[in-house]
Amino acid sequence: MKTLKAIGALLLLAAMVPAAAQERTTMGVQYQYGLPMGGFKNSLIKDGSPRGASIDIQYAINPQWRIGGALGYQDFYQKNPRQTYKMSDGSDISAVVTNSVQSTALMAKGSFLPLGADSSRLQPYITLGVGANMVQYSQLLGEFGSSDDVWIRMAAQGGAGIQYALGAKGQTALTLGAVYNYMPLNQAGIKNINNLAVQAGVRFILRNNGRGGRSNGDVWQQRRPNHYDRGW
């Protein structure tokens, strides 16, 4: 339900963007591969996760800076080989222990493009984000659940990457990058779920064709692309 609310907030944010500003508003969609780091990797889940994605909406406030919001999701899973565990009451339990962690993070996000309004199709970028992270954690002993919890904690991230504008209009760009997610937890013996997300995706300009925004033709006729005007 919280995820739905977060998606709703992003939709509302997009809807509130004035039509004239939509030329400078972009939406990014990234597939991401999550790699547990540090204590998360050493004590709970060491396997990388191919089950992740993120979306963001950003507004270009000047040629070098964009601000907006982002929603990211990653599903971590680890099945451990059967092992015998000594319990505090003296009993021994042999079980295949499975740990499952889902992270859904909603963040305010800022991006910096060092090349600014440069017309190059290839643009490096740096991102910073801070917000809230909903962590769902479950642990199974065999088919029997021993833990099933949900917590909300702060989260922050920093990342870098490159984007490459496609086509003559340059309305879409491919993106490739990585973000380090700092996600403290301090629950159930889990200090954090810090991870590195390698991302690949696309970025679109949110347009408002025929409703007051600049027309496709206007952009098309520009002889020299200006990425700032297009939200890049």
């Binding site: 089950r51 899973y77 099945k79 021994d92 042999s94 499952s100 889902q102 199974l140 065999g142 088919e143």
Partner: peptide, 18 residues
């Protein structure tokens, strides 16, 4: 696409021994 922990256990793995 969340990986279902129970569906990824075979019959032997589902058992616990105490």
């Amino acid at each position: 696409c969340k990986k279902d922990p129970i569906k990824n256990l075979d019959t032997e793995e589902r058992r616990i021994y105490i």
